[in-house]
């Protein structure tokens, strides 16, 4: 029983960065702008957050600079793809490559190290105990005591869902994503809406990255995202158009990562659990495409 509690608590912790980035991916894809640079944005924000917090010892400053770096990167993505007509996939790949090398380069410039930023003392975001709930046995341990970013992520699920369904911005995003001409016919600027959607996705991705280097550990290490940006994409692909769906698939992937720690004891190879999210996504893609094909052939 204690194992189960442990497992779920760890799962929630591990789901956080995936969920944050996946929500970002959801917003972008709802507007019809695919952002596959999540991995790169997460990595760079993780780096900026850890380093700035080490240099300034200010949580606010490090949060702001990390988020700004994420917004700047997505701004570049939006500018190149929307204004300069670059292919949005290629531009995102460029950002990912930039991040993987750039973080190490700048890490070296600032700290002289190339492996991690452990030499400078970085801060960590505080954890939160929820009064009353933390007294409940079992559930209390699962839900309380998490990092505030985790609670922000959970809150964001509701917030993003609400934004998409009940605010004018969300309606515009969905309209642009589904039928550009319909949006243009009522005077909506497709480019502006896509840019805003991309920036929001960058915002969430940078939070996901910041969590990695300042939520649980207090340092940045090279390639610390380890593919989580891609898992977030997979979670969004599985979760479809709803924030709650995305939350569920992120949770599933979080649980599988958490399981890999305990399953090692059962001799299930870690590589399989690591590959699990990707295998599931491909299988789901096959199933969904199969269903679509059937319907299409049925109609014609």
């Amino acid at each position: 029983m204690a194992d189960m509690v442990d497992f779920l608590s760890t799962s929630l912790r591990v789901t956080t960065p995936i969920l944050l980035s996946a929500l970002g991916a959801l917003i972008a894809s709802s507007a019809g702008a695919t952002n596959i640079a999540l991995e790169g944005i997460m990595l760079f924000s993780a780096f900026v957050g850890a380093v700035v917090s080490g240099l300034t010892h200010s949580l606010i400053l490090s949060l702001l600079s990390a988020v700004s770096s994420g917004l700047i990167m997505t701004g570049i993505l939006a500018f190149f793809s929307l204004k300069l007509k670059a292919n949005i996939i290629m531009a995102a790949i460029a950002l990912n490559i930039f991040s993987s090398g750039g973080t190490i380069f700048f890490l070296n410039v600032i700290t002289g190290e190339k492996g991690s930023s452990a030499s400078i003392e970085s801060l960590v975001f505080p954890t939160l105990e929820i009064p009353l709930i933390n007294k409940i046995p079992g559930i209390g341990e699962i839900l309380s005591g998490h990092n505030i970013l985790t609670y922000f992520a959970l809150f964001s699920v509701i917030a993003v869902s609400f934004m998409l369904k009940r605010t004018p911005l969300g309606t515009k995003i969905r309209a642009v994503g589904e039928n550009k001409e319909a949006a243009e016919s009522v005077g909506i600027s497709v480019r502006k809406v896509k840019t805003v959607a991309l920036l929001l996705s960058g915002f969430y991705a940078s939070l996901g990255g910041v969590y990695l280097s300042m939520g649980y550990v207090s340092w940045f290490s090279r390639n610390m995202t380890s593919g989580r940006g891609w898992i977030a994409l997979a979670a969004q692909a599985l979760g479809g158009k709803s924030a709650y769906g995305v939350a569920i698939s992120s949770g599933v992937f979080g649980m599988s990562e958490s399981a890999s720690y305990s399953l090692k004891l059962l001799n299930i190879p870690g590589e399989l659990t690591q590959a699990f999210p990707f295998i599931i996504t491909v299988l789901m893609l096959i199933i969904v495409s199969f269903k679509k094909e059937r319907r299409f052939i049925g109609n014609s």
Binding site: P168, T171, K172, R174, A175, N179, A182, A183, I188
Partner: peptide, 13 residues
């Protein structure tokens, strides 16, 4: 926008 309701389409924007 096919997936939105008549109401949402009419007031879009």
């Amino acid at each position: 926008v096919q997936s939105m309701t008549a109401l949402e389409n009419i007031t879009l924007g």
